[in-house]
Structures are given as C-alpha cells and as structure tokens.
Amino acid sequence: MPICGESSSLPSGSGAKVWIAHAGVLLGSCVAAAAAGYYLRRHRSRSFRSRVIGIIPARYASSRFEGKPLVPILGKPMIQRTWERAKLASTLDSLVVATDDERIAECCRGFGADVIMTSESCRNGAERCSEALQKLAKSYDIVVNIQGDEPLIEPEIIDGIVQALQRAPDAVFSTAVTSLKPEYAFDSNRVKCVIDSNGYAIYFSRGLIPFNKSGKVNPKFPYLLHLGIQSYDSEFLKIYPKLEPTPLQLEEDLEQLKVLENGYKMKVIKVDHDAHGVDTPEDVEKMEAIIREKNIE
C-alpha cells in the first residue's frame, strides 16, 4: 500500500485543486486521506482546540491479561486508580471511560466515573475513543486517549500532550516519550520511538531503534520509550477508523504507525517519567510496591 503524503505547505486557491487532483493520479487510494488532511488544516486555522475530553478505553478480553482493568491494586480496581490520576489533569474539561463490557461499566459507575458503552468490534483504543466521541452529547476539539493500565500516570503528562497539540497546528496527534532503561531494550512490550529535530515522530517499533551494527545496546545513546498516552485532533479521530490498516501497523501491531503511514504528523514531547504500565499479572505486585513506596492512597 502506498504511503499517503500530506504536504505541510499546500498552495492556496486553484493550486490546491491541482495538487489534490495530481495526488489522485499518483496515489489513487490516498486521495481521501490527503483531502481529509487538507480539511483538518483549514479546520484548525479557525479553532484553538480549546475543548478537551479524556477517554479511558477499557476492554475485558485481553490475550495477555484477561480482566485487567478490574484487577485490584491495593484495594482499588486498576481502572479506578487510572481515573483518579487523570482527574487531576488541569486541561481536561471532561473524563469518561469507554468500554464494551458491562462488568467494567458497573465498576466504573460505582466509583463515580461517566461511562460510554462501545461495540466489541473496536480493534484498538483509538477506534474505541472514536466511537465514544461520536456518542457524546457535547463536541470537543481534542480527545486524550488515556491507557487504563497506567495507574500511576502523571496528570502533568496529560496536560503536556494536550498543550503540545494545541501548539502544533500541523499535527493531528501528540504523545509522550521518556528515557528507555537498558534492561528494557529488547522487551517487545516496551515500544520505542525515534523523533526528528523538530519533535515530530519518525517511527515506533517493538524492536530497539535505532539499531546498530554491533547488535548491542549503546550506553551512550538516548533511546526513547513510548508512553501509552496520546491525544488526537477530534476531526482526525473521526477519520482514523476509516483509514485502512497499513503494512507497518499490522507488522508491529502499533496503531500509531497507521497515522504516520498515511502521512499525518505526530508531535512528541519528552518527559521524565518512570513507566509503570501493567502488561502482565506479574506486573501487579511491582505496581503495589511502587504505590506503597510513593505513599499513594
């Protein structure tokens, strides 16, 4: 499948029509994505993206850890701990949980969270956020996808990626990275990222990137670990599920690669954060030890 490129300096007036027509001849199936990008750019010029909602997508069925959102961590379901941390972010106008499972929905309503029921057909968190967005009564400019398995997510990181997207009108997506610890260099559950000199994502991988000829970790290189939290321009999020799966996305099983393969820009911020996601049952005990150490209720 060809990669769709979105020009960062699309000419105005009749030149834009020529460009889009030319793209149609050269790229075929990429016309819809290119035109969508042009629409988004025009849309953003009229809006500051001031209305922000956080969505925590949660599903019960997981191949690695079934029922993970409900696993108790020192007396509280993990999704409750994530929700309580996210509520502290100053940029969020609203916060909801999006799920396809009534057990999760009942649990979340029990501790006071708003819940949006979504379909079981959602293939990833972005698609679940997209469906939830369209079911909301109010409209928003930015949607923050907050991973439910990050019970120690820092509200400052949520605020940081929101502000990054507000300040980058050429981007439709923003996310965060932190330093990768050497012991996680070849852990496929730890997603790595490389960015350009302007802070835009180049690539994400489950393998170590960049890789060198020695095949070993270079202790002097600042490898970057991708944190699961990400935010989207709301108009782009409506388009996202309509984009066909892409080769790199399918090979790496990373949803953000579909964004890059279709030529959209992604802003990345660097933060100082010890990643404490829960990927397997073995991670729960580690998480509880950290919470005790930090004296978090």
Rank of each mutant, 00 (worst) to 15 (best):
L26G: 07
A61D: 13
G54M: 08
A23G: 13
H22A: 15
L95F: 05
H43R: 13
G75R: 06
S29P: 01
L88T: 05
R85H: 12
Y38K: 10
L26I: 11
A36I: 06
V31K: 10
R44T: 05
V97I: 15
F48S: 14
A32K: 14
G67R: 04
I56K: 03
R41W: 10
I79V: 14
E84T: 01
Y39G: 03
P69Y: 09
H43D: 12
I53L: 10
G67A: 10
G54F: 02
A23P: 00
G54E: 11
R51I: 02
G24M: 08
S62Q: 05
L27M: 12
H22S: 13
G67N: 06
A32E: 15
H22N: 11
G24I: 11
I79K: 01
V71D: 01
S90M: 08
R51M: 03
P57A: 11
R64V: 10
L74I: 02
V52I: 13
V96A: 09
P72M: 11
G37D: 04
P77R: 06
V31I: 12
V97Y: 05
A61Y: 04
A89Y: 09
R81E: 08
P72R: 06
W83A: 10
K68G: 02
V71T: 13
F65M: 07
S29D: 15
P57H: 07
A61Q: 09
A58K: 02
A35I: 06
W83S: 04
K68I: 09
A86Y: 03
K87R: 15
L92S: 04
V71Y: 03
A86E: 05
L26K: 15
P69W: 09
V96D: 01
E84V: 02
R49I: 00
D93W: 03
G54T: 09
